[in-house]
Computed example of a mutant assay.
Amino acid sequence: MDIKKALYLEQDATYKYHQMKLYKPGDVYQYENDEEEKIVFLDEGAALIQAQGKESDWVSHDLVTPKYIISLENMMTNVYIPSYLMYRVKFVETSRMYIVDRDYFLNHLYLNPLDFQEFFESLAIKYINKTRMISVSNESPVTKIANSLFAIIYTLHPNQQVKSYQLPSYITQKFISEYSSTGKARTSEALKELERIGIVQKKKPLKIDVERLNRFITNEH
C-alpha cells in the first residue's frame, strides 16, 4: 500500500499536516520524546532502528522498509509511553521519510479502513517476526541465526515466496548478530554451518536458499 497516497498528502500543499525529508545512506534521524504526536514512515528506501546498548553504543534491533510505521508507539493516545524509550533511525539506502501529524493520520485511518489493510498486515508481520525471535531466544546460535534470516527476508518480501534470495549489502554479519542477540563469534560459526548445509549460498553479499532455510526451520520446530 502507498501510505502517502492513502493519506492524500499531495493535497496537503501547505505542509500543514506533514513534513517530507530526504536522507542519504549513513544519515541519522534522532527520535525525540517531544514528537509523540507524529507518525513517521518511509515512502522509499530502508533504515535500521537502533537503540543504545549498555556501553552507549548504538545496536541495530530492527529493519524498516516502506509500509512500516517507525514511531508505532505514537499511535497510542491513552497509554503512557516511558520517557526512556529512545531510539534512532539510521538510513542504509537513499530514503524519503514522511513525518505526519498523528490526528491527521488516525482520521484517515478511521475513514478509510480498507485502504489500510496492508498497513495492518505489516504490523502483523512485525509481530510474527518478534514472536519468532523470542520463541527461539534460548535455542542454539544456528537456530537463532536461521530464524533471523527468515524474519529479515519476510520483512523485505512478505508478498513473495522466493526460492533463493540475495540480501541487500546493508544486511551484514554485524546486523544479524545484533538482530538475533547472538555474539559475533557465534554468529560467524552459525553462518559457516548454514553454508555447510547449503542454506547460505554466498557470504558477500549474503545469498540464501530460502527453500532449504524453510525446511531447516520447520525441522528444528
Rank of each mutant, 00 (worst) to 15 (best):
A13Q: 12
K21Y: 08
D27A: 08
Y17K: 15
Q11F: 03
D12S: 03
P25T: 09
K5Q: 12
P25R: 11
G26Q: 13
M20R: 14
D12I: 03
D12E: 01
D27C: 11
K24V: 05
E32V: 08
Y15N: 12
E32A: 10
E10R: 03
K24A: 11
G26C: 10
E32G: 03
P25L: 07
V28L: 07
Y31A: 07
Y29A: 12
Y8H: 04
N33M: 11
A13D: 10
L9R: 00
G26S: 03
G26W: 02
N33E: 06
Q11V: 01
K16T: 01
K24H: 13
A13V: 14
L9N: 01
E10Q: 15
E32R: 06
Y15G: 07
L9I: 09
D27F: 03
Q30T: 15
K16Q: 06
A6Y: 07
Y17I: 07
Y17P: 07
L7M: 10
E10F: 04
L22H: 15
H18G: 06
L9K: 00
P25M: 11
M20E: 11
P25I: 01
A13T: 08
E10A: 08
K5F: 13
P25H: 02
Y29Q: 08
K16M: 02
D34C: 09
Q30N: 15
D27N: 13
K21G: 13
T14R: 05
K21I: 11
L22F: 15
A6N: 03
K16C: 02
L22S: 06
Q30P: 04
L22C: 14
Y23W: 02
N33D: 05
Y29E: 12
E32Q: 14
Y23N: 13
L9A: 02
D12Q: 01
Y31N: 07
L7V: 01
Y8C: 02
L22Y: 08
H18R: 08
K5H: 03
L7R: 11
E32L: 01
E32W: 00
D12F: 01
L22R: 08
Q30S: 15
G26A: 07
T14G: 02
Q30Y: 14
V28H: 00
A6I: 13
